[in-house]
Amino acid sequence: MTARIDHTTTSGTFSLDGQTFEVDNNAWVFGDDQECVVIDVPHDAEAIRALVGNRAVKAVLATHAHDDHVRAAVALADAVHAPLLLHPDDRVLWDLVHPDRAPDGELADGQLVVVGDAELEILHTPGHAPGAVCFYSPQRGVVFTGDTLFAGGPGATGRSYSDFSVLVASIRDRLLPLPDATTVHTGHGESTTIGAVRPQFDEWVARGY
């Protein structure tokens, strides 16, 4: 059965470095009618659980551990009895949000998460956060980029644990080589394609976006 993608947007806050902002976050559920994975659990575990329905959740996956992407992750993982998986380089950010609960497992570059008849390949894309990852499904022609890449440019790098030059290298080396038709589902805002963002890349770099 072909994997499908379900989506919702939830609203809340993002806090880091002593500042707090109102944000809207995308959350994604990838799977078939029997099983799925959840990609990011921002602010409302129940809204995302409604997307899951009666399916078995193989894992709750975090693109990175900023609080607006994982605040409700523990509540959802406990409710659906699924492991929480995070790249270990983002543990420093995770511990700011959930100091009393460690992730259940680690994500590694090149790792494959099998869901139904599809796979998600883990692409380590540091820069916005040290352990930021993207999830690429060649079968569906889609990549979930979290805050690494948006329709309008790279993710933000003006806060602790971020680095613009590292982010640029991640996008250039890990995402731009994907086929132009690959749909980019982001952590905030509208989706785009690799082909749509490719011509803008040099301009972003030149102006230090």
Rank of each mutant, 00 (worst) to 15 (best):
F21T: 13
R55W: 07
A27P: 01
E22F: 09
V23L: 05
D24V: 13
V57K: 08
D32L: 05
A45V: 02
D67Y: 06
F21C: 02
D67E: 13
I48V: 15
A59T: 05
W28A: 03
L51D: 14
V52Y: 10
R71Y: 06
A65M: 05
Q19K: 13
G31Q: 11
D24W: 01
H69F: 12
L51R: 09
V23I: 09
H64M: 12
T63R: 05
R55V: 09
H66P: 00
F30I: 02
G31M: 06
F21W: 11
D44S: 14
R55D: 08
N26I: 01
R55G: 07
F30M: 04
L61W: 05
W28N: 08
E35M: 09
T63P: 01
G18H: 09
P42S: 15
D44P: 03
A27G: 05
V41G: 04
N54F: 01
R55I: 07
E35N: 05
G31R: 09
F30V: 06
D33Y: 02
A27W: 00
A50E: 15
G18T: 07
A56D: 14
G31L: 06
K58I: 13
T63H: 07
R71S: 15
H66T: 11
G31W: 02
R49D: 08
V23T: 15
H66A: 11
V57T: 15
N54L: 00
V70F: 04
H66I: 11
D32I: 02
F21N: 06
L61K: 07
H43V: 00
N25T: 15
R55T: 12
A56C: 05
I48T: 08
N26Q: 03
T20Y: 00
F30T: 03
C36N: 09
L51M: 09
N25Y: 00
H69M: 12
D32P: 01
D44M: 05
N54E: 15
A45W: 13
V57S: 12
F21H: 14
V37N: 12
A45Q: 09
R71K: 14
A59E: 09
H69V: 00
Q34P: 00
D33F: 02
V38F: 07
W28R: 06
W28P: 01
E35T: 15
V70G: 11
A47H: 06
D32K: 09
V52G: 10
A65Q: 10
F30K: 04
D44A: 14
G18I: 04
D32G: 10
C36F: 03
A50H: 09
N25L: 03
A45H: 14
D44W: 01
A56F: 01
D68H: 15
L51W: 05
R55N: 12
H69T: 02
A27F: 03
I39K: 08
V37H: 11
A27K: 04
I39F: 06
V37Q: 07
A65D: 14
E22P: 00
V23E: 01
A56M: 04
D32T: 10
V41F: 10
D32C: 12
V60G: 06
V57G: 10
E22H: 14
Q19H: 11
T20A: 10
V57Q: 06
H64G: 14
V70C: 14
C36D: 12
